[in-house]
Amino acid sequence: MTATRTSTLAIRTPEGVVFALQLASPVTRFLAWGVDFVCIMVATSVLGAVVNLLAIFNLDLSQAVTILVFFAVQIGYGFFCEWLWRGQTVGKRFLRLRVVDARGMRLQFSQIVIRNLLRFVDMLPAFYLVGGVATLLNARTQRLGDLAANTIVIRTPQIDQPDLEQMLAGKFNSLRSHPHLEARLRQKITPVEASLALQAILRRDEFEPRARAELFTRLGQYFRSIVEFPPDAVENITDEQYLRNVVDTVFRSRRTEA
């Protein structure tokens, strides 16, 4: 099991298979806590208003229940949500984070309790300063509660299937006339590179014109160097078109045959 500052935790199973968990950054976690803080405030306000109605019958009882409700919500919010949603609170769901066991095992109730009780130390002296510093210093971005409970917080981004049909349909791909080189490109390109090219094409309209041109020039140069196609296939096409052809080549087989 290895963790790097690039915020992934790779776990090797006894079967020799490696899978990676993306660690949540301290800032994302702080934002999730902000959402949870608002939820706690809203919950205590609403419940407080409801409990105040008891004052009609008995003021002492109403005040006692109010104290109890505040305490239960503040302490129990984390336990309840993380147990109910298997490692998620409202804030974590909102920011697509999840608490998991540090070795990839099943999250136990005792782990949830410990990481939430240890907030008492992590939140010292204010605004989770101790916990925040701990996450910055720890390779697995664990606060003290995570360390004691053997838990980590990971990102669980929703991966939308790219709409390749709409993006690539009707576009001429000059690389297709060299199937043996296309096969070599598919073989040589790494998953990260393929994903990079796809993301660049999918998000091309989000860039400023100058930044877009610079980005595709650099990417074009790089991808042209992976496999060299004959001049007739690559001449007179822009770097962006070249990258579009690469994406079509790499992702085409599944689209057309599935």
């Binding site: 776990i11 199973t13 020799g16 298979v17 990839g104 095992m105 991966i159 790499v250 992702f251």
Partner: peptide, 30 residues
């Protein structure tokens, strides 16, 4: 997943399998 790990054009499938294996791993090896 091991077979797909070296295959470039299926990053989404690989991520899906990673998540599936991670969940099953936690239940099997606990």
């Amino acid at each position: 997943l091991a077979k797909l790990n070296t295959f470039a054009n299926e990053p989404d499938t690989r991520r899906f399998l990673e998540s599936l294996v991670a969940r099953a791993y936690g239940e099997i090896h606990e």
